[in-house]
């Protein structure tokens, strides 16, 4: 109820601002955006653009999450791996995303640019969080597992997964939003044909503020939806356990 009221208040403020500015180039009203959305959504082009960007950005996110977790497990087990990986992770975190995008445009086909950029955004976040989780695993429980000579599968299932779940979830929640932002930014610069980024670029080229706002809303909705589905699925999978 409170959330709905806050959204309504924000929409009202937006409407008032647009009316006060009274310039469709600078700021359109929520109604114009809604009207653009209603025109766009039934078209095949809209769904093709959505499918193009969703498949690439989410692929990058999933690959980044998987490799980030895998590297964290290796670094948690072998300190030398952490030492060797540290400069790469620090470089990825500190380098401006635009530099990566331009570099990748030289290296890669622009159609797959958003996969790689999304992957790069996710990798250090997942790596750092999961490694932190592994390092903070209860030493006494691990000692117990050593004494009883418990195998790796049961250690993973009973000790590591319950402990790492909040770390993995928080890393994925933060990085899924980031992968959307960076992925779309990469598409706007690389302009792969049929992507959401291309639509945003066209909106800029034709000064179509209504389209810009409409596509931005679509990106926000897709990002929230992806986050919710992913978190729910992951929570379900990580909590799969015997009922006793």
């Amino acid at each position: 109820m409170e959330k709905a009221a806050a959204v309504l208040a924000a929409l009202l403020l937006w409407q008032l601002l647009a009316m006060a500015i009274n310039n469709r180039l600078l700021l359109v009203t929520p109604f114009v955006v809604l009207e653009r959305l209603f025109r766009m959504i039934p078209t095949g082009d809209f769904w093709r653009s959505v499918a193009f960007s969703v498949s690439r950005i989410l692929s990058g996110f999933l690959i980044g999450s998987f490799i980030g977790t895998l590297l964290a497990v290796i670094a948690g087990r072998f300190r030398i791996a952490d030492i060797l990986l540290r400069p790469y992770m620090a470089a990825i975190k500190a380098t401006p995303v635009a530099s990566f995008i331009i570099l990748c445009l030289i290296w890669l086909n622009s159609r797959n640019l958003s996969v790689f950029i999304s992957f790069l955004m996710v990798l250090p976040i997942v790596y750092t969080n999961v490694l932190l989780g592994i390092r903070s695993t209860d030493k006494q429980l691990l000692e117990m597992a050593d004494l009883f000579n418990i195998g790796w599968w049961r250690r993973l299932r009973y000790i590591y997964i319950p402990h790492l779940t909040p770390y993995i979830l928080s890393a994925c929640t933060v990085s899924i939003g980031l992968s959307w932002k960076a992925g779309v930014a990469a598409e706007v610069i690389g302009i792969p044909t049929g992507s959401i980024g291309e639509r945003l670029y066209e909106a800029k080229e034709y000064f179509s503020t209504g389209d810009l706002f409409a596509w931005t809303l679509v990106i926000i909705a897709l990002s929230i939806l992806a986050e919710k589905i992913f978190v729910k699925t992951l929570t379900y999978l990580l909590n799969l356990r015997e009922t006793y």
Binding site: L141, M144, L147, I159, P162, E242, Y244
Partner: peptide, 19 residues
């Protein structure tokens, strides 16, 4: 092949007794 009851219980907190 060793077994122990430690000074602290060292249980997997979110699981039940059987697990």
């Amino acid at each position: 092949r060793k077994s122990a009851v430690f000074q602290e219980e060292r249980l997997c907190e979110t699981f039940g007794a059987i697990s």
